[in-house]
Amino acid sequence: METYYNPKDLAKFAEMSEGAPELWKKFSSWYGAVFEDGALTAREKSLIALGVAHAVQCPYCIDAYTQDCLEKGADLDQMTEAVHVASAIRGGASLVHGVQMKNVNSKLTM
């Protein structure tokens, strides 16, 4: 069945350079630098990326960063906790908007 997402397309990411090579070059260089060891380790950054991948629900990023986390020495426990962090922020972000609902409710009801 045809789908919008194809795992093989991940390998074609670099084709995004066509049409805007200079922008791609800047993106690639910045992207590479972001994930290097720094104040955070490369493994910690990869786990953050995995969490964000779940928050933005990008299947390419989930595929790539699950592999990357394993190759940075993370295990399933650490990756699962990263996904929980992303889920907690997503869930919390919805829930905290309940305050808006309560504000409107307070204003409109006796």
Binding site: D37, T41, A42, R43, Q67, L70, E71, K72, G73
Partner: peptide
């Protein structure tokens, strides 16, 4: 000795040694 528990490449030796 560390070797990956699956079909992936090993992590960087120095950082894994620290862990």
């Amino acid at each position: 000795v560390y070797n990956p528990v699956g079909a992936f490449l090993p992590a960087a030796q120095e950082s894994l040694e620290r862990d």
